[in-house]
Amino acid sequence: MQLTDFTTLTFDVYGTLIDWESGMVAGLQPLLERTGRNLNRDQILEAHARHESSQQRYTPHLQYRLLLAVVYKRLAEEWGVTATHDECLAYGDFVKQWPAFADTAQALVYLKQHYQLVVLSNVDNESFAYSQRKLGVEFDAVYTAEDIGSYKPAQRNFDYMLEKLGERGIDKSQILHTAESMFHDHQPANRNGLANCWIYRRHDKQGFGATMNPGDMPSVDFRFNSMAELAEAHRQRV
């Protein structure tokens, strides 16, 4: 199997292209300053992952920025501090300010010359519009949780993506699903028989950060520690 075997890259965005962990920690600072606790970065992210995943199961219809507002409220309760409704909403809106990884835009510009680029993301459309401005390319298709009415790793999200791409003549054998999260993306990629590429942004860290522990680790067909490494590996094949 070679990178040049595929016509289409389907991307997770947050954690893969956008540095959501840094964005989360920055957005949570007002709350963290009131906790009086000495929480380290991974403790913060793991608590966030737990509440986010739970909320996505219970309210799959909720737009992501509004779901993040609920996560902020749950974190405040867990950490024993108060948060106003406006503060919760402000945290949800902060997703628009989450930064792209430094290598993302340049890598996408290169990859756009060789593949169709498709987004499958647990985000709402308004928030993604702000993120896309940081990513440097126009995607060939964008499928969001808001479009689908559920959140990855739900099978519904992958069914939707495969149906819509199939309508455009793109068979799943042509797709390389490219993502950081084992829980949200690589487990369902395995389940759906999709070739997959792990962008292991947390290669120098322990644990799973802002994503849930997947349990049994999925298999991956390619692994790179950054988007820049993916682009360079392709460049060496053409």
Results as ranks from 00 to 15, higher is better:
residue 89 L to V: 15
residue 22 S to D: 10
residue 111 L to P: 08
residue 55 Q to L: 15
residue 56 Q to G: 12
residue 105 A to C: 01
residue 151 Y to W: 01
residue 131 S to G: 04
residue 89 L to F: 14
residue 41 R to H: 10
residue 128 F to I: 07
residue 133 R to K: 15
residue 119 V to C: 08
residue 114 H to P: 00
residue 122 N to D: 13
residue 63 Q to L: 15
residue 31 L to A: 03
residue 56 Q to W: 04
residue 64 Y to G: 05
residue 83 A to G: 11
residue 71 V to M: 07
residue 152 K to R: 04
residue 68 L to R: 12
residue 31 L to G: 03
residue 18 I to H: 00
residue 135 L to T: 00
residue 109 V to W: 02
residue 141 A to D: 14
residue 110 Y to H: 12
residue 127 S to Y: 09
residue 67 L to W: 11
residue 83 A to H: 13
residue 31 L to T: 04
residue 89 L to D: 12
residue 69 A to Q: 07
residue 100 A to I: 01
residue 107 A to H: 03
residue 119 V to M: 07
residue 123 V to R: 02
residue 34 R to G: 06
residue 138 E to L: 12
residue 79 W to D: 07
residue 148 I to D: 01
residue 81 V to M: 11
residue 148 I to E: 02
residue 23 G to L: 01
residue 22 S to I: 04
residue 153 P to T: 05
residue 60 P to D: 07
residue 150 S to R: 06
residue 62 L to T: 15
residue 72 Y to P: 14
residue 63 Q to H: 15
residue 53 S to I: 09
residue 73 K to T: 15
residue 74 R to W: 12
residue 72 Y to G: 11
residue 95 V to L: 14
residue 147 D to R: 10
residue 70 V to Y: 13
residue 153 P to I: 04
residue 92 G to C: 00
residue 127 S to W: 09
residue 71 V to E: 10
residue 29 Q to V: 08
residue 27 G to P: 05
residue 134 K to P: 11
residue 52 E to A: 07
residue 108 L to D: 00
residue 35 T to V: 07
residue 70 V to C: 14
residue 104 T to C: 02
residue 46 E to D: 09
residue 116 Q to V: 07
residue 82 T to L: 13
residue 83 A to D: 12
residue 82 T to Y: 13
residue 52 E to H: 09
residue 152 K to I: 01
residue 130 Y to A: 15
residue 43 Q to A: 10
residue 44 I to C: 05
residue 59 T to V: 14
residue 48 H to S: 05
residue 74 R to L: 14
residue 140 D to Q: 01
residue 93 D to K: 12
residue 27 G to T: 02
